[in-house]
Each structure stands twice: as structure tokens, then as C-alpha cells.
Design a protein around this nucleic acid. Structure first.
Lengths: 209, 209, 209, 209
DNA sequence: AATGAATGAGTCTTCATTCAT
DNA sequence: GATGAATGAAGACTCATTCAT
């Protein structure tokens, strides 16, 4: 029991550190962020931080992994709740958009800081992106088999293009040029997507709550 | 004359420094790049470098500006050589793709390093991207006025989406996952674009040199 | 009984810690050795270690004291088993050589690590060395009184010299340049010692096991 | 000319740093010495120190090398000024003693700090010691060939022993137990050496200036 | 104009030690 | 008695920038 309490407290502190790291990395970028500040914001000491994480880089990677898991979970849920492949791809992209839309800090880290923070991080982020692009590609391919989209669509290119379109919309939103909600932006994007694939857009999509 | 010679020499050195900076920044990323190494590669001294540029950040920004001008020039040329708005937008995107395709180092700096190198750079890159997105938007809007694309297309979203698609394809190519030429990738992308806008793809596009 | 058992357990743990400390200090040197590693090797926790010893320095000193006692015991035994003063001095030096020869780790700590680990340790080691040198000096002095060695020998210098000679041979052996056994090395050394004192070497010395 | 001045100043500063390092290392030992303090004592900045030396370890090694060269030079001079092999060995040992006697700080570093400062340093010091031992051995061997010392002397052991004896006397002196000059100590040591080799001591040694 | 020696603020990281449980 | 999470002081090292020459 005592042990469990200790362990629970330690885990809570670990989470506090991750939280603080998220704050600081998102606010300053990877290089400008200092371990000192992260520790301070987590209300612990530098040594305490190093007890839980082997170093700054590992801390950042842990953040990335955590975000990856979260993202993946939401996307999987969204995909599972749709019926046909095209709707699934649609749901997947929308889930990504929403997840980042709700977690601006994560978005910053994923889309802005990590790629420029060094080869290791760049690599990691790209792999995660590729994972999602591949998911979309598979769904598009399935839709193509079922005749839901034009035969001449190259699904690999289309998947990458749509991911990029979503990515770009996100980026624009991150700059706060368009205060418009991401959901609304996606509503405007969807018809383009469907039409580009030669598919009929869903009648009254109301997936957006 | 002596003055002119001196000035010419100074300019040449300035260019050598920019070249070296491009090399080093692209190879190491902004933060890992050291002024020392840039000076060495430019075959000058640190003091010399600081004579020509106020600092590391300014050097990087100068690089960005230079790249911006180059890019803009090519895009303008490409746009001018097409006739109708839609073809112009098409040409603009392709020009961007080709420019980066030929200058991998520039692409790295623009798409990977600059955004993550700090707020100032992030800001600058986004502004340049917005400039191109706005250009595309205007062309799409003109096309819409002339009835070349569907009336219900939100040109702001469409422009951003297509820019993002191109961006994403570029990113994928930077990772060298797709050894396929960027030109070919764009050939596969173009039909998607046209169809998404409800426009007929150009018959035999041979814009590719 | 319970108390006794507990005490016995505590002592056993104390010994385990000393053993572990010997291992780690000898392998890494004083400064590179970490309390963490010692605790781990002793199969206890850092807190546990600090229950038995006040700190790293104290632990090292405890090791030194223990080694001192061991060494002293062996030397005393050796001295007691010889008859005349000269033979006793001989036995003392040989005992030192043998003790270290059998405990390479101890030798390392005594001769290499401790002197360089800080003034306190340096001081301590020197005092122990001086103790042995003084022992030898007294024996040489007695031999001189009895006319066994030349009258003009300065016993203080001679004692220090012979201790140093043994020390140096040990050092050379620690470097493993001379794979030859220490006993053999001492066999070669003894005649030098005796002759330098103007004494006749023992006829057939068979002290070596 | 300007360049030369700059270079000269730089060299002077380099020397100041070496001097300061000698002071601090000798006073505190390798591990306790801080780069900060060395820089302060050299009246330069940490960065300045790192401009001249790649790091703390390199600085220490540079010190060792410098001392080695000095020592070697003096020993060589001493050896050259003696006539027969035995007198040369004698001169070599005395030169070592004198050099250290005049440079207590160097002695501390060589004999106390370096061996315990880590394997690299230990190794380096031992190699230097071995170099001197080997020199003595060769001289003893020559003396043996010429019949100046007993046939049964193992020169390898004898050389090591005598080096160790000198070493030990030095050590004792370092602790300031014997305020007596090192020269006098060596006067007392010499007869032991000669006699141990079965050689007649030089009549009136007046090598000491 | 150019050089390169010098600066010093800032960073990550280590580790002996403490202490609540 | 034992545990291991937490502390915090200290240290080596980097590097953009400056400036005497």
C-alpha cells in the first residue's frame, strides 16, 4: 500500500512533467526550451526530471509517442464508426483535424517543432505521418475496388494529397489567420475531396457535432 | 575602379557566404549549424562573416529572402506563360514543385528547418506560403468568375488545400520514400485538382519541359 | 534472539556493501564509482547503504581501514615468525608484496586510487605507508645495533628506499607488464637489499611457499 | 607583424593557462579542480581556455607532456655529463629527484594526481616512468658488461627498485615529513645503491652544484 | 575589410545526499 | 531498517558575438 502510494505519486509527477514539457516545448520550440523551465513548471527539480526521463531528447520523444498513441486511438475510433471505406477515410482525416484542433500545443509540437528539431525527431514525425497516409491510402484503395471512386485515381498520390490538404489547413489555422473553426474549414474541404475522387459527396454529413 | 573592384570582391564574398550558409544549414539544420563552420566553408573568418551579415539569424533570413525572390521569379514566369486562370494556377503550383525539386537544400530549409527554428522564421515562412496561397486563390477566383470551375468551390479553402497537397508531396519526396520524380508525381496530382474543382483537365499537358 | 538475528543480518549486509564497494572502487576509481552502482551490486538500495555508512567518503575510508588491519595482521604474523631483525624486515616486506599480490583490487585502491582521490585519502594512505616504513626502520636499526648491517647505513633512508623498491615492483606488476609472479620478483630483489645493507643474504631462503 | 604580435600574445596566454592549471591541479587534484577556477587564475575566460585546449583532460595531458619533456631534457643533460654507465645512471636518478624537488607542484601532479585521475592518465604516467626505468636498466646493463657491477644483478629488477626507492623518497618529501633537502636524502641513498650492485661508491661525489 | 583570439551567458547533465513512507 | 523518489549544487562544455590589431 505504501509502495503503491509512492508509485502513484511518482506517476502523477511523471505526468506533471510531461504536461509541463508540452507547455514549454510548444511555447518555445525544442531548442529554446530549457530543462530548467520545464522542471520549474512541473514544480519539481531538475534532478527529479532526470529521474523520470533520461534527458531532454527522451522527454520530447516521450511526448511524441504519447501524442501518437492518443491520435491513433481517436482515428481508430473514428474509422470504426463509419461504414464504407470512403466515409472511413473521411472520418480519419476529420479525426486528425479535430484532435489537433483541440490541442493546439500538440499541433505545434507535431507540425512545427519536431520536424525542425533534428533528424531523430524529423524522422519520427514523418513516420507517423506516413502511417496515417498509408491508412488513408488503404481505405481509398478499398473504395476504388468497390467502384466508389474513379478507376484512374492513384490512391497513393491522392492519400498524400489529402493528408497534405488537411495539414495545410491546420497550419493556416495554427497561424490564427483564420479564426474560423477547423470543423467549418473541413466542411468546405470535404466536397473538394469527394469531387476530386469522382465520388458523390455524402448528402448531409452531420458527423460534426 | 579600385573601389569597384573592391565592391565586386565584397559581393562575391557575400555570395560565397550565402552559398556556404545554404550548405551548412541544409546539412545540419538551423540550430546545429555553427557560424564557425559556415565561415570556414566560405573560406573566410568569423569576423569576415559578421562584416557582411549582422548575425546568424540575419544570415538565415537573408537566405530565406533570396530563396523567396528566386521562387517568386520562377512562379511569375510560369504564370505569365499560361493563358487562362486555371492553367496559370496549375503552372504556379508546378513551378513551386520544380523549383524545390531542383534545389533540395532550399526545400529542406524552407519546409523543415525554418518553421522549427523559432517564431521569427516560422512567421516568415508562413507569410511566404500565404503569399503563394493567395496567388492561387486569386487565380481560382478568376476562374470561378469565368465559369471554369464550379460555383460552389470556396476558393480560399481550395487554394490552401492544393498548396497543402503539393507541400505534402514535396515532403514525401524529401524523405526519398518516393524516388519517383516530382514531375511525375505532379502529373498524377493534376487530375485530382481539376476534378475537385469541377473542371476538365487539360487535354495533353506538356508543360513539362 | 530476534535482535541477534537482526544484528547478524545487518552485519552481513554491511559486509556485502564493503565487498561491493571494493569491486566498484577498484574497477572505476574513486571518483568514477557511483554510490548507485555500489548499492546495486550489494543488492541493496541507496538508502540502505546510507544507513550503514555516512557517505561515499566514509565508505572508502572504511575500506582503507579494513585493508590496513588485514595488512597489518599479515605483516605482524610474518614478522613474528622470523628470528633476527633483518629476517623480520625481509619477512615484512615480502608479506606486503604477497598481500597485495593476492588482492589486486586492494592494491589498486591503495596504490592508485586513494592517493589521488583527495587530500583526506592521500593523507591516510601516506600514514599507513609511513607506519610500515617505520616498522622496517626499527628492524633495520636493531640489526645495525647487532652489527648485522653496515654501521654507516642510514636506516631511515634505507627503510624508505626498500619500501619504495617494493612499491615500484608492485606498481610494475599492477600494470601487468611483468606477468612474472611477485614472489619471483622479490627473489630477485632480496639480494640487492641485503647487499646494499652490507649484509650477507640468507643462504637458502625458502620463505616462498 | 601584427599577426606575430597577436600570436605572441596568444602563446603567452596559453602559457598562463598552463601555469594556472598547474597551480590548481596541484592544489586540488584533478577531479576537484574546476575549469572555472583555472580560467580565473589565468585571468581569462572559460571560453578562452577552451579556445586553447579542447577540454579539461587535454589540458591536464598537455601539462603532463610538458613536464615529461622538461624532465627528459634535464635527465638527458645529466646523463651526458657523466662518463661511465654507473655514474650516468646515478646522474639520471639524481636529476629526476632534483627536477621534482624544485617543482613541488609538478611532483604532486606526476606522482599523486595523475595516477588516480583515470585510466588514461594512469597509463600515461606509467609509460613515462617505464621510460626512465628502461633508461636506468640499459645503463646498468652496460655497467654489468663492463664489469662495474656484480654479474648476478638482474638489471631489470634493480632499475625498477632504484627508481622506486627514489620515488618513495620523493613521496616522503612531498608529505613534508622530512624537511631535509632532497639532495641530502640522495646523498644517503647513493651508497645503498652502489653497494647493492656490488660497486664501489664514487669517492667524493660533488655532482651536486 | 579581415582576422581570430577572447568573452560569458546559458545548457544539459551528474550524483551524493536526504527523507517521506 | 529499507526503499527509491526527490533535491540541488556543481561542473564541463558550446557558441553567437565582439573587438583589438
Amino acid at each position: 500500500m505504501t509502495e503503491q502510494l509512492q508509485q502513484a505519486r511518482a506517476l502523477r509527477r511523471r505526468d506533471r512533467i510531461l504536461d509541463a514539457a508540452l507547455d514549454v516545448f510548444a511555447a518555445r520550440g525544442y531548442h529554446e526550451a530549457s530543462v530548467e523551465e520545464i522542471a520549474a513548471r512541473a514544480e519539481t527539480s531538475k534532478g527529479g526530471l532526470y529521474f523520470h526521463f533520461p534527458g531532454k531528447q527522451a522527454l520530447f520523444l516521450a511526448l511524441l509517442e504519447w501524442a501518437h498513441r492518443e491520435l491513433r486511438r481517436r482515428v481508430d475510433t473514428a474509422v470504426a464508426s463509419a461504414n464504407d471505406p470512403l466515409a472511413r477515410a473521411d472520418a480519419a482525416l476529420q479525426a486528425v483535424l479535430r484532435a489537433f484542433g483541440r490541442h493546439r500545443r500538440l499541433a505545434r509540437i507535431f507540425l512545427v517543432d519536431a520536424p525542425g528539431a533534428g533528424p531523430e525527431f524529423h524522422e519520427r514525425v514523418l513516420r507517423i505521418q506516413e502511417e496515417f497516409i498509408e491508412l488513408v491510402r488503404e481505405l481509398l484503395e478499398a473504395a476504388k475496388q468497390r467502384g466508389e471512386i474513379e478507376k484512374d485515381v492513384e490512391t497513393a498520390v491522392a492519400a498524400r494529397a489529402w493528408f497534405g490538404a488537411v495539414h495545410s489547413v491546420l497550419h493556416g489555422w495554427l497561424l490564427a489567420r483564420s479564426p474560423r473553426s477547423l470543423d467549418l474549414a473541413y466542411e468546405a474541404l470535404r466536397p473538394l475531396i469527394y469531387r476530386s475522387l469522382g465520388a458523390a459527396p455524402p448528402r448531409n454529413e452531420d458527423g460534426a457535432r
